[in-house]
Design a protein around this nucleic acid. Structure first.
Lengths: 187, 187
DNA sequence: GTCTATACACAGATAGAC
DNA sequence: GTCTATCTGTGTATAGAC
């Protein structure tokens, strides 16, 4: 992959996560990367192609992160904490959201394959969180686990909602506050 | 307030909640309400004026809803359930979000007074939820309440995140799934 | 209050030279 | 691969007639 393409993907991911799918333009990326906007079309013919590439790259990165955590002997609770830390770090100064959240608002204007990629990402995250909750129930490090899958679904919603709360007021500590009750269950 | 203005506010709220601040235009509203887009400027000179009016109307409606629930002798748990039902109903077929969520993505492109209105709405909701959790702790209808304010912050994030999950896949039952662990705490 | 007409900026995208 | 130039559509907003 060329440097330009890498730079474009990087710039586009940041743009989507701070401004949303409808909020960023090829002009923004061009200014950021330092080429003309027509040149972007050489790498990504349409905005949807770029969006899909960004989504796939994001998916791969999180998949690798999950695998990395799974390779450790960490407890169920420690795994959830590690993932929560990741979402917290993704917030930056309170201005960047999870890519899925950023795309969700424009869900009816993104191409069908981009929507499919969003669904795939969510499914992967819920599956991983489900396994972590099950592990935590078995090793006794997570309190009050009844249905790992439901807990996982709720936790993903909580993570995304907490990011929204932080962004709405550009205050990352809102994320911490929203996570506190969940983290309190982790021994 | 004239019928046209009422219709515009109604149409605009739906537009923002389905397409976001950046995703709807005066052309959409004009087609929906049945007037020309230039006529909208007579009622709301700028898009920011319209956004503010929609936000204020939304705030007033929820404030009235909170007051209505408070006027009943309902338990803490019953109050939370009533509010959760409201967010669930607001989902429609899985395509409409809370107005705050819809605006949040475009937070850096909305006028400062609209952002202030978003913050005011969130503050009101957290305050109300805090009181409901405190009531539930005292009347014994909500399990494991330690810090009502933290529980309230987490619940607002969960409600909004659950709406996002439902919208991402146009499936309202995702909302129900994400809420289940919380609702299980309510006696 | 609503209309037609229009201004002006910017969006995504394409053609073709270099 | 990147550029200039350009197309076409759409966005918010305004002027002025009715």
């Amino acid at each position: 992959m060329t440097d330009t393409k890498t730079a474009l993907l990087r710039s586009a991911e940041h743009a989507v996560r701070t401004k949303g799918f409808d909020g960023f333009s090829y002009a923004d990326l061009a200014a950021d990367v330092g080429i003309r906007k027509a040149s972007i079309h050489h790498h990504f013919p349409a905005k949807a192609d770029l969006s899909l590439a960004v989504m796939q790259q994001y998916h791969d990165r999180f998949e690798a992160l999950c695998a990395q955590i799974d390779a450790t002997p960490a407890s169920g609770a420690a795994r959830l904490r590690a993932m929560a830390d990741q979402y917290r770090a993704a917030l930056g100064g309170g201005d960047t959201l999870c890519l899925c959240v950023a795309f969700s608002i424009s869900a009816d204007r993104v191409r069908v394959d981009v929507r499919a990629a969003m669904a795939a990402f969510r499914a992967m995250m819920v599956d991983w969180l489900t396994a972590a909750f099950a592990r935590g129930r078995d090793d006794g490090t997570i309190a009050q686990v009844s249905h790992p899958r439901e807990d996982a679904t709720a936790m993903l919603a909580l993570l995304e909602g907490a990011q929204l709360a932080a962004r709405a007021q550009r205050d990352p500590t809102r994320f911490d506050a929203a996570l506190r009750p969940l983290l309190a269950r982790l021994g």
